[in-house]
Write a protein that binds this DNA or RNA. Structure first.
Lengths: 202, 202
DNA sequence: GTCTATACAAAGATAGAC
DNA sequence: GTCTATCTTTGTATAGAC
């Protein structure tokens, strides 16, 4: 077995790329875009810092790739719910959204991205991706304007609860409990299990 | 007239403090917590960088003061709508929320704060403040669990649209238009006028 | 109350070896 | 494909003058 430091065991570039993207999603989600260091991403992925930069060019490009992947994963999760009875479609999509919590940092990374509209390079891509999601729910899922509004608002509130790491207050504050229940319906249990706790790094 | 550089015209410490907090709100809202430099805050406030640090101790304390002020301003805006007919109260509160866009960066700063739940110092205070708002709408305004859920989700979606700076797409994309209309009701006009554009620094 | 000068640490990116 | 070493810039915070 090769020594742990120095050349981390070789890996096909596609797999390595995916594992760095997943690690970066966790770190960006917990620390924000600017608050993330390429070194922390590297450590989380088990590679060296210069290697991360070398593979993605710049931290900014890495972030853009992470955000794009996050949106594609989200759309895939939604698309998987298109088959099946239309009456419960939106509810199933909500469940799929909660399932995305299994991808550490994904929802929080999206919310972070959605705050960077003022950045000349990041802003335009984030707007495009958000509009992609909007077009998907309106045109492919067939939601009307009111449904899309409610669905997206629900999603953003879930992101907030997750980003705040408010789950620890669920059984300490009845108002918090009510909000979680209204927001997550049957998915509360999954959300509380999957979401990061206040004291976890991510 | 005293020269523009060197001792900026003296100002009572309370006023200076408030003007730095307002400037910092704009910068934090546009650049996130980690992405903000104390120097940029200083420039926006028209004072020197060391002076900002000296007045607030650390960048972190400055941020905590900014976030606290943002929540207090929000609660004040809501409280001002408590008098008047109960039937339209929630709607009026929504209007008051849009009015907060006049305070540059306030809504975006809040959303940024709500993503920092994993920070050992910032997280606990942000949870407390969010729960304060929740308690206010439930107990002082008297919203039921469903109303609070819808109201807060609506708010978070507004924050997202503002942070993304999606207003420029309002009359370019019918789906975006519908979303703005559903989300902001009669307040669309105000929102589009008050929110920062994609190319503005804040 | 406010500034200039500066010390010191952190982090992105590059060069080049294996 | 992956690492070590390092250059360079930036940014927080301190010291001390006015």
């Amino acid at each position: 077995m090769s020594s742990m430091s120095s050349p981390t065991s070789r890996m096909p570039s596609g797999e390595r790329r995916e594992s760095i993207l997943a690690a970066a999603t966790a770190v960006f989600g917990a620390r924000s875009y600017a608050g993330t260091t390429t070194d922390e991403v590297a450590k989380a992925a088990g590679v060296s810092q210069p290697y991360v930069v070398r593979m993605f060019g710049t931290k900014q490009k890495l972030f853009l790739d992470v955000v794009d992947r996050a949106v594609q994963l989200t759309l895939s999760a939604f698309r998987a719910q298109l088959e099946g009875p239309a009456e419960t479609r939106i509810e199933r999509m909500g469940g799929a959204y909660v399932g995305l919590l299994a991808e550490r940092g994904l929802l929080q990374t999206l919310n972070n991205a959605f705050l960077l509209g003022g950045d000349p390079e990041i802003g335009p891509q984030c707007r495009r991706l958000f509009v992609d999601v909007l077009h998907f729910v309106r045109n492919e899922v067939g939601m009307d304007s009111e449904q899309a509004f409610a669905f997206l608002g629900n999603g953003m509130l879930i992101n907030t609860l997750v980003g705040l790491r408010l789950g620890g207050d669920y059984d300490r504050d009845p108002d918090v409990k009510d909000l979680y229940d209204a927001c997550l319906g049957g998915g509360v249990g999954a959300a509380l299990t999957l979401a990061p706790r206040a004291d976890e790094p991510w």
